[in-house]
Amino acid sequence: MNKLPPPPGRPKAGAPLGGGRRRRLRGDHHPADIRLGAVASGFALVVGVAFAQSSAVDEIAKYRAALQDGNPAELWEARGEGLWKQPGGPNKVSFEKCDLGLGSGVVKGAYAQMPRYFADADRVMDLESRIVWCKVKLQGFSEADAKKNPFGGPDNKADMEALVAYVTSESRGVKMNVAGAHPKEREAYRLGEKMFYFRGGSHDFACATCHGVDNQRIRLQDLPNLTTKEGAQKAYTTWPAYRVSQGELRTFQWRLYDCFRQQRFPELEFASDASIALTMFLAQNANGAAFDAPAIKR
């Protein structure tokens, strides 16, 4: 079990690039067992649905619990660590001088305090936009190149997702402590709050349409109420996440992008000001809870 096995549905997923730490999936489960478990749970799920809805919901809860045993997100974390530490870009330098807010090169605990105001950029940045900044300022990429390919797909590994997986994993267990003292941080929070309630598109949807009330579902999918501290904490601290249904690690930027797609809005641009403001609103609402990602979700 020292070798990193490929995650389900992604046989060519990357091994660590640098001589990074060796990582193992938690628990003793081989990925094949995870797959079998998923199939078995899926079968149980079908049977449950045939009887009653409540038992279907119970089965989904069991399926989710079973997933926690082994999280392929660790493959992204390991690949991200390699990418972080090895020289890259036209300038052939690593990210090890990238300042995520706690000083040059400090990764530990940095994500639990993001988004935040960065004096060098004179604006509020989330992790992804800060990585873009470091790719431009340290590694010498153009901004357009630094923002390319933020979300992976089949046969397309996105370095951004791996970098985010690594950095966020270094905040696991750290209490969320996003600042709101700087005027620009306060402004980002207020703008994010307004955007959360902005109704638009063909369907009149806002974020709040699905995430403003406790204990609601779309089909059988439970929806977090992001307007309460408890709801925001539970949701925000479990992104990024490995999505079993997609075989990909998904970042918070992706979460927002795909919510807006389903809201019937146009495409949210990666690392845009609106995405940062909304992240600020949700991250600050999650303050006080221990960060617990990369997680694993259906």
């Binding site: 902005f198 019937r264 809005f265 146009p266 495409e267 641009e269």
Partner: peptide, 26 residues
Amino acid sequence: TSAKATQVLKASFKARGQAGMDRLDQ
């Protein structure tokens, strides 16, 4: 704040497929 939020929102999206920027005109 509402006016600014709408302005920032509109600057942060791009038209794609059938979802044009007019979707953000309330």
